[in-house]
């Protein structure tokens, strides 16, 4: 048992080092991006005819502070603050702590993307199994074609298409905003109903554009497992179809678990296109705002969170694997 904790401890330490490395990298990358928000605002004001000194004062009051120190000092400051779980203050939402903004955006994304992920995974896996088992029939060909087609459509086109069809042509679902502003938020049936109605299209967009990838991966995986000796052996030993299907499904799902766990990690990046198109105030939307406004602290914070989530997901995937696949040495 002590060995178990030692291994887990090792992975956590390695994970922390990795988070630090990746977040340092993104910190510098973000800061080397062309375009300085303060300078841009200053130039706009001057172009509007405001005297330079007055413009500078206005900008200073607008952003709260002007990052004037050398980059490496900003970096050490950033790391020191991160170690204290302080991600700094946003520039575009002047003065609001980044942590506060991220925590506020997180539930929207987690509910939307997690539901979308679950729906696309379940439908995709089922379609993949059918497409593989019936691969010599019209049904299999049709599923393969549909999966490839849907996989090829970018998320934002899917989102725009769904929005156009279901909010403009057929006015079935509302467009924009996460809930009806006329209903006061609270734990009431009309409010929850409104939330659900507004969430249908974003979730559908996510699920439909993700479904193809799961179906194609699962189809390939099942096809390879179907050719394995133990499946034929089970058939020739007279094992029932349902037990055989269980053998096939468990073996074919193995490689997909890694992808699923990583997807859950990447989920914390939200879906920028879908959230922006549907005006959904999740993490993707927040990142998009931060990018547009050159809101460095918010960007750094959001990227740090994605990094941490993906690295944690990787560790979880590793641990999960030792449970799912007996061939991998238990730690």
């Amino acid at each position: 048992m002590s060995k178990f904790f030692k291994r887990i401890g090792k992975r956590i330490v390695a994970g922390l080092v990795m988070i630090l490395a990746v977040s340092s990298f993104t910190f510098f990358l973000v800061h080397f991006m062309p375009g300085n928000p303060v300078q841009t605002k200053l130039n706009t004001l001057i172009e509007e005819g405001i005297p330079p000194l007055q413009a500078q004062a206005q900008v200073r009051s607008m952003y709260g502070f002007i990052p004037h120190q050398p980059l490496y000092i900003q970096y050490f400051h950033y790391v020191w603050q991160v170690l204290h779980l302080n991600l700094g203050k946003s520039i575009s939402y002047s003065g609001v702590p980044v942590m506060h903004l991220l925590l506020k955006a997180m539930p929207w994304t987690v509910i939307m993307v997690l539901t979308g992920l679950a729906v696309s995974f379940i439908i995709g896996i089922t379609a993949g199994v059918i497409a593989s088992v019936k691969r010599n029939s019209k049904l299999g060909d049709g599923l393969l074609l549909l999966s490839t087609f849907l996989h090829g459509i970018p998320q934002f086109i899917m989102a725009l298409g769904l929005a156009y069809v279901f909010t403009t042509i057929f006015k079935i679902f509302p467009f924009g905003a996460p809930y009806n502003a006329a209903i006061s938020p609270g734990f009431t049936i009309p409010f929850i109903g409104s939330l659900a109605r507004h969430a249908v299209l974003p979730i559908a967009a996510y699920a439909i554009s993700g479904f193809g990838a799961w179906a194609l991966t699962m189809r390939a995986s099942v096809t390879s497992v179907l050719g394995d000796d133990y499946i034929l052996a089970a058939e020739l030993r007279g094992v029932t179809p349902s037990i055989r299907l269980r053998y096939i499904a468990r073996n074919a799902m193995l490689p997909l678990f890694t992808i699923l766990t990583l997807s859950v990690g990447f989920m914390f990046g939200g879906s920028i296109f879908i959230e922006t198109i549907f005006d959904y105030p999740g993490l993707g939307y927040t990142i998009n705002t931060a990018l547009a406004a050159r809101d460095y602290p918010l960007m750094d914070g959001a990227f740090l969170m994605i990094t941490a989530a993906v690295i944690i997901a990787t560790i979880v995937a590793d641990l999960l694997y030792t449970v799912l696949d007996p061939r991998i040495q238990r730690i």
Binding site: D229, Y230, A233, G238, N251, L254, D325
Partner: peptide, 21 residues
């Protein structure tokens, strides 16, 4: 029910004839 109870088979690739999981 013929395969198994009437004719038992040992397979060519018996090394891999069992579900690894």
């Amino acid at each position: 029910h013929f395969r198994g109870p009437v004719v038992g088979t040992v397979f060519q690739a018996s090394q891999n004839a069992m579900n690894p999981l």
